[in-house]
Design a protein around this nucleic acid. Sequence first.
DNA 1: CTGTTAGCGCGTTCAC
DNA 2: GTGAACGCGCTAACAG
Lengths: 343, 343
Amino acid sequence: MAGIRQLAERLDISIGTVSRALNNKPDVKKETRERVLKMALEMGYRPNQMGRALRRGSTNTIGFVMEIGNPSALGGDNFFMGLLDSVQEVLAKSGFDLVLLPCRSADDPIEFLQRQIARGVADALVISATRRHDPRIELLLKTGTPFLALGRSETKGDYPWIDLDFEGVAGQSVRRLAAMGHNRIAIAMPRRSVNLAHLFLQGYRSAVADLGLDPDPDLVQRVSSSENGGMALANRLMSLDIPPTAVILAHELMASGLYDGLQQGGLRPGHDMSIIGFRQNPQLRYLRPSLACHALSLQALGQAVGRRVLALVDPPESDPPSPLVWEMDYIEGDSVRPLIPVA
Amino acid sequence: MAGIRQLAERLDISIGTVSRALNNKPDVKKETRERVLKMALEMGYRPNQMGRALRRGSTNTIGFVMEIGNPSALGGDNFFMGLLDSVQEVLAKSGFDLVLLPCRSADDPIEFLQRQIARGVADALVISATRRHDPRIELLLKTGTPFLALGRSETKGDYPWIDLDFEGVAGQSVRRLAAMGHNRIAIAMPRRSVNLAHLFLQGYRSAVADLGLDPDPDLVQRVSSSENGGMALANRLMSLDIPPTAVILAHELMASGLYDGLQQGGLRPGHDMSIIGFRQNPQLRYLRPSLACHALSLQALGQAVGRRVLALVDPPESDPPSPLVWEMDYIEGDSVRPLIPVA
DNA sequence: CTGTTAGCGCGTTCAC
DNA sequence: GTGAACGCGCTAACAG
């Protein structure tokens, strides 16, 4: 684990030349470069990234801010794990490293971000779980930190984002269920400050209004994105004067709790209540009846995230960081049935 | 987002004095210190960690190396998420930050570690998923990088580790099932290079031998730690000439796949085959019949991890980094039944 | 082509 | 009690 100085001393040339040789600068004799590279390998030279970063002002690292300790993470949501794999793959190809910056839900996200920015640990950040109004975005814009938002926000400004098509999924789900005769369609999502909940609700409301379905506000339920939340949802829906005949979930992890809750209340998922989940999740593969949901290639999405965040720091190679709504494909499942069976 | 220089200029004192005031050095007039601290707050001063790290040789950061892209992570294992929450809590109290260093299973772990060490991103590392023979440990020992291994290894050397009691869990599970009349007890775990599999098997073999149970090698199955692995396991066990009447899992995520696989084969989990899972996992809370398993406080374990890794970099406050085997408590479940029902 | 020099931002030592 | 100067490891600008 030698430094550039030892390398130079050992080769008896100046450290400047060594630096240029290692960094593929043009003005170095081929023979010298080879000598340096050979010796570097031999001595196990690793450039000290602190010194390099201090000098160059960049770290070749992307930071991914991740909330931990929230119900869906603890419940085993594999969304980020699947995503990060291909994000990292893309970054690695450009010589960038990925670090995850775990932010406890108990911590102040602003204080946390400020620390990370100051730390200079990353050239650009990816933030997720955007809020409808998100102070983090204001901070990042103000400090000029390059970032990509994984999720939209109503916070104004010129910044790139990628988000799933929550509105589309909610709207299409309503239409699909309505076409099968459902009139009282419920919807379940997390608390309103999370922007995805807002978008999901918009898509739902808009479709419900268009189709003239029952707009009963009791059909809109706020529960946590977890198995527990699904259980709570089951109980709330069953306790309504007129329970809905279908429900759309903003997070698929609610499904297993919902199934069990319904069954404990004597209702059969799919038969007595149609259910459409959000994302197709391998973890729910064996759920019966199979959950209707929406497919999404985490790999493709991860690559898009990687490319866009690279565009923020690398020469923006004609890849304009424009907003991107990620479409999802409906996957049929036995959890959805027509309201009146057509024999 | 000002640096120390701007602070000094604004206060019209030297950089050195500002630095001393901020770092609580003795040789500074109380009044001056207060002025500095006040201004620092006002200007939103954040020390540049690159410069600081370069100068001090330490970063006040702990790196947690995490494998991503493996089946259990993608399957939604929440083990690390739950753990990290309290690790970070402990670190934060000592002013340390936590960064996660995701290592793709496709990447070379050694090359990856070398990069991270050189990067100087962390004062100490936590590595997990230790192998029976683990070259990473050799590298870390050789380079003198402080680290904590989350998991034992047979790789020799003087280093601290914390590990779950795989041997104990496997052995106790065998004894428990044997006491209920089971004689052919199967065991399922990941590939042998992962050390936990080795330990698990040792505990199993030792108990099987002690009790004079059927030592049929077909009862030892290697499958991935995922729902899929559980499904594969079900098929393999059912295809044996004499299927076992009980099975012990090295990873609880196998359980749901196993349940479904058995049911598809006409067997009832619990009735026709007793099942003991590994860790109590909230994600499996609603599994029926309820899974017998072993409880573990992720919070307590996380705190232990945090304290021990801090002891590597902070003044070791009488907390000797001795090896630690983390005990787990058996939780009864309906997935375990006596072989011959006693009416 | 190569050596020399000047910082990047900070903490620290040594004068004053 | 404070300021000035030095150096952590590295890259970039300039001189030779």
